[in-house]
Amino acid sequence: MGSGSFASASLSRHLLRGAVGFGGLAGAVLLFPALGWASLLLVPVGLLALRGCPMCWTLGLVQTLSMGRLRRSCTDQGCELARADTAPEPAAAPERTPAPERTPAPEPAAVFERRGGR
C-alpha cells in the first residue's frame, strides 16, 4: 500500500472500517434528537474511519478488491491492465541519453552594449 492508496490490508478490515465509519455518521444524525449536539462527536470518528469521506472509503474498497489481482504494464504504445497471473513481467526501462550541454547565457552588460547602450 503505497502513498495515495486507500486500500486496507484485508477485505474484512476494510469492511469493518466502513461499518464504523458509516455507523458513526449515521449515529450522529440519528442520535441528534436524543443527545443534541453531543451526538455530533461521532462525525469525526466516522470520517476518520472512512479516511476522509465515503468516496475515499469506496475507492479503497475497489483498491482492496483488486490488490494483487491486476498488474499494469506500460510500453511506448501505452499502458494496459491485465490479470496478475497472466500479465507479462514489465520490461526494463530503456537507458536515457544525457541531455546536450547548454551554452551559458550572455552577461546582461554585454547584451546592453550590443544594443547601443552606454
Rank of each mutant, 00 (worst) to 15 (best):
M1C: 07
S3F: 12
S3I: 15
G4I: 03
S5E: 06
S8F: 12
S8D: 11
A9R: 15
S10Y: 07
S12T: 05
H14C: 02
L16V: 10
L16Q: 09
L16N: 08
R17I: 04
R17A: 13
R17G: 10
R17Y: 14
A19V: 13
A19P: 08
V20E: 00
F22M: 06
F22N: 07
F22W: 11
G23S: 02
G24Q: 06
A26C: 09
A28I: 00
A28T: 01
V29A: 12
L30P: 04
L31R: 03
P33E: 04
A34G: 08
A34K: 10
G36F: 03
W37G: 15
W37A: 15
A38C: 03
S39F: 03
L40V: 01
L40D: 04
L40C: 04
V45K: 05
G46H: 05
L47G: 09
A49D: 00
A49H: 01
L50T: 00
G52M: 07
M55H: 09
C56S: 13
C56F: 10
W57S: 04
W57C: 05
W57G: 07
G60C: 06
V62W: 10
Q63G: 12
L65Y: 09
L65F: 13
M67W: 13
M67Y: 11
G68M: 07
R72Q: 14
S73H: 13
C74W: 00
C74Y: 03
T75G: 10
T75P: 02
D76M: 10
G78I: 03
G78S: 08
C79D: 01
L81G: 03
L81R: 04
A82N: 08
A84F: 11
D85H: 15
T86A: 11
A91P: 14
A93R: 12
R96Y: 06
A99F: 15
A99M: 12
P100R: 09
E101K: 15
E101R: 15
E101W: 09
R102N: 07
T103Q: 14
T103C: 04
T103I: 01
A105Q: 09
P106G: 08
E107C: 04
P108A: 11
F112T: 12
E113Y: 14
E113N: 08
R114Q: 15
G117L: 00
